[in-house]
Computed example of a mutant assay.
Amino acid sequence: MTAAQADLPELPAEFLEMPEGLRIDRPDVADGAALWRLARDSRTLDLNSSYSYLLWCRDFAGTSVVARDTEDGRPVGFITGYIRPEQPGTLLVWQVAVDAAQRGRGVAAALLDGLTVQVARQHRLTTVETTITPGNTASERLFASYAARHGAAVEREVLFEAGQFPDGGHEPEVLHRIGPLSV
Rank of each mutant, 00 (worst) to 15 (best):
R84Y: 05
L142H: 06
S64L: 00
T80D: 07
V154W: 03
I83E: 00
N48C: 11
D31N: 10
L55F: 11
D59G: 10
G163D: 08
E161Q: 11
Q95F: 01
Q5R: 15
A162G: 02
R124Q: 13
R84M: 10
R103A: 06
Y51E: 13
A100D: 14
P180A: 05
V76C: 08
E17T: 13
E171M: 00
I178N: 05
P12S: 02
G114W: 07
V158A: 09
L11P: 03
P9E: 00
R103H: 03
T70F: 05
D31G: 01
V93P: 08
V128Y: 01
Q102W: 07
R105H: 07
A138W: 03
L38G: 07
G89Y: 13
D41I: 14
A138D: 08
A13T: 09
A101T: 13
A152N: 00
S64A: 00
R177A: 12
A152E: 01
N136H: 10
R26H: 03
S42F: 13
G114C: 03
G151T: 10
T2F: 00
L159A: 07
A100I: 14
T63P: 04
G32S: 10
A6S: 09
V119K: 00
E157C: 05
I132P: 08
A138N: 01
G114I: 00
T131E: 02
L115R: 02
E71H: 14
E129Q: 15
G77D: 02
R124Y: 10
R37V: 08
F78H: 04
V96P: 04
F160G: 02
A148T: 14
T116L: 03
W56P: 01
E140Y: 09
I79G: 03
D41P: 07
R37M: 04
R105V: 10
G73D: 03
A33N: 11
L45T: 01
A109L: 15
